[in-house]
Computed example of a mutant assay.
Amino acid sequence: MCTRSDGFPGIGRAAAASIGLRYFEVISVVVTGFFHETAFYGSDDDFLAHVVPFLENGLRAGEPSVVACGEWNTSLVRGALGRGTAVLYVPGADQYSRPSEAISQYRALFREHTEAGSRQMRVVGDVPHPGVGVRWDWWARYEAAVNQAYAEFPVWGLCPYDTRTTPPEVLADVTRTHPNVATAPGTHEVNPGYREGVPGSTQVPDPLERRSPLVELVDPTAGAVREAVGSVIGRLRLGEDESHDVVYASSEIVTNGLTHGTAPVRFRLWADEKRVVVSVTDQGSGPSDPLAGLVPTTETLSAGLGLWILHRTCDYVSMGRDADGFTVRVSVGGQT
């Protein structure tokens, strides 16, 4: 049995890259860390050509295999593999509700199988994007973050993207966040377009931001923000939990900006009857860690714990830098 930490049969990753080698999957290859791969497809047949052999080889090797795809792709895989296979099917909408939730659930699953003695696992997942009606920014951060978040687990993760529905800017981010790419079914190559870190996705203001903000404060205290926000959301049709989430999020991201950012710190809030958008902009560069907000931390010098709570409670969280500065933007009360 050929056991390698880079997932390449019989040749090292650097050597393969140096000679432009295409290498073919050997089902006995065992990876000792996360092997993050993407594949682009333009038809249902292309999708199956990538995914079915990937899963069948894993099953023949006795590797736990997971499919977390949308309904249509799941039905395609089920139909191709037939009944009685040991694949674990997880509804994509459940697995990919929020990036922080996806990481938490996957890590729990990977840990369970690793502790049970699994030497390698395989996962196929449909990561959401605007082509299926989901905002992309925090999923771009997810694709970058999992290179670290899953690094300790022997997992081969395949993220297929449909070129018929995926916007070009998303495909560009996907290329930058995956160290490996299946350029054709059965081939697995080092991705020359991979870059470490979070892709610099363009910050997209929420549609509510076309209106004048209901609250706008500069360098406010957290207490002043809580008071101002509380007076506004009392007039909205938010549930008790959502109202609490808005107040907490507003206080947390202002505190984060004042503590870790660079003045001036500008707080703004927009709302309609059922939804609230809050943004905080400072002149700093923002956190350099791609895991910030996506995994919990108890480090007192880090903003990670508060940002993680935001990612677990708010309906959308965007973080990034543009001409105005570094902005954290959250939405509570449902997706746009």
Rank of each mutant, 00 (worst) to 15 (best):
G234R: 14
D173W: 13
A323T: 12
G125W: 07
A149K: 06
E101C: 01
W136V: 10
D46V: 05
R312P: 00
R210K: 13
L59H: 04
T183Y: 11
S331G: 10
A271E: 01
H129S: 10
V127Q: 03
N180Y: 14
T163Q: 11
D137T: 12
A14G: 07
L55Q: 05
T166S: 12
D126E: 12
R312Q: 13
P160A: 12
R266W: 04
R226P: 00
S251G: 10
S243Y: 02
V124P: 05
N191Q: 07
G293H: 08
T255I: 03
W138H: 09
D44N: 13
E299Q: 07
T166C: 15
I309E: 07
E189M: 07
V146R: 07
E299P: 00
N180G: 03
Q120S: 14
W139P: 04
G84F: 11
V328N: 00
F153L: 02
V276I: 03
P192Y: 09
I27A: 12
S43P: 02
S212D: 12
G230I: 10
S285I: 01
V247C: 09
G257C: 01
K274Q: 09
P264V: 10
V330Q: 01
L294V: 02
T175L: 13
H113G: 00
F110L: 15
L59V: 06
G284Q: 02
F40H: 09
S118W: 06
Y161P: 02
S285G: 12
L238N: 09
G333Q: 05
G284L: 03
Q95N: 04
T177L: 08
G33E: 10
F153Y: 15
